[in-house]
Design a binder for these strands. Structure first.
Lengths: 209, 209
DNA sequence: TAGATTGTTAATCGATTAACAATC
DNA sequence: TAGATTGTTAATCGATTAACAATC
């Protein structure tokens, strides 16, 4: 069905979506590759190549229809569906994510949260009540999650991921500083905050001679 | 001094650092490009090119000296210095980051935190006391920060960044869903959590025909 | 029609991979 | 020395940029 889209283009889709959303809010009807490129820090040529790659359509002499293209990208990103999330690990980060409301705006819905610490079990956080990891399988049967958010120690992440995979979870949003090894049909996106900060350290160090 | 290193290589440095740290903990003295490549999901050839690019040195027939190479990369990443951080915006994420202890292990030290909400001012969080944004300039004079962590609404991020830049801050770790525009000598690394999750949505949607 | 801008083909650039001589 | 593995040069691959004909 959907033909091949190069990975660099896919990674830019969310950014396209963001800028098109902004433009739509400003009631802009059409935007040229030149303007979009400038906003996004790309070349106009690259924008035209990207659009062509992800199947967008423009009008010569006029530009790209903002609303239509945003909708098209939204569909590619699977925004038409609601995704259910479960958060594994109620440390500082887990707690913050559970309370983060921006997700719901984007049709991501946190439906459960787990921790291994019995002291945290039963506590209400955001819209969910923390459960013990022992109840994972049972809970996943009753209320399956599309995506697991892994905010637990590196040492526990791989095993938890395997357990979740066995429960049918196929999406993994990984915050633990490890690279997960899961079967091909699992989708993993990692957020390595520590590495991101280290990269900033590098840039800071080497920004002028 | 330091010769040019291609950007893709730089972005891999933190991952090299992570795996070398693990190997060092296991008391591995040398590691071959083949083994390192397998761990990191790269080709051996790429590892050798990377190492050569960032100025690492191996021993033929033997591999790369783990501890030495880790130290070398650490120096490139500026890990020899302690970096001071200020967190701007005490929402869920800001609070989580202030309490996050992994940073200190990596020689990043949070020394102040700000919010525009007077109700939050004066409250102690993690190792710092929240201050009102009004006190930003004064505080930066007394205790300058190398890096500002921007965990505030998109609409406020650009202006806050400019203010911080004017205070002499040159590193920006940006969590707001905007792209910052700052002078050349500022180093910006953005963590777009929403976009990262959207990418996962895409992968989930398109993982098998 | 004239002007603007797309869509696409060709050219360039840079990153990854392959190959192999150098050498520990 | 023989075996293993680096360091580097060459080949390939893919992404970005440039150019321009097609067309709204």
């Amino acid at each position: 069905m959907s033909s091949y889209i190069p990975d660099p283009v896919i990674k830019r889709l969310p950014m396209y979506y963001r800028y098109l959303s902004e433009k739509e809010k400003e009631n802009t009807l059409f935007i040229s590759s030149t303007e979009l490129a400038q906003l996004m820090g790309l070349t106009a040529s690259q924008v035209r190549q990207d659009v062509s790659a992800f199947g967008g359509e423009g009008r010569q002499g006029c530009g790209y229809p903002v609303a239509e293209m945003r909708h098209h990208i939204g569909k590619l990103l699977g925004k038409s569906k609601v995704r259910t999330l479960t958060v594994i690990g109620m440390g500082n980060l887990g707690r913050a994510l559970v309370r983060y409301e921006t997700f719901s705006q984007n049709s991501f819905q946190i439906i459960s949260a787990f921790d291994t610490n019995p002291k945290k079990a039963g506590i209400r956080m955001g819209a969910v009540t923390v459960r013990l990891m022992d109840e994972l399988e049972e809970t996943m049967r009753e209320a399956p999650a599309d995506i697991a958010v892994l905010t637990l120690p590196a040492s526990a992440a791989q095993k938890a991921a395997e357990r979740l995979y066995a429960c049918g979870v196929r999406g993994f949003w990984n915050y633990a500083p490890v690279d997960l090894h899961l079967p091909q049909d699992a989708a993993v996106v990692s957020v390595h905050l520590d590495e991101s900060l280290e990269l900033l350290g590098y840039r800071l160090e080497h920004n002028e001679g």
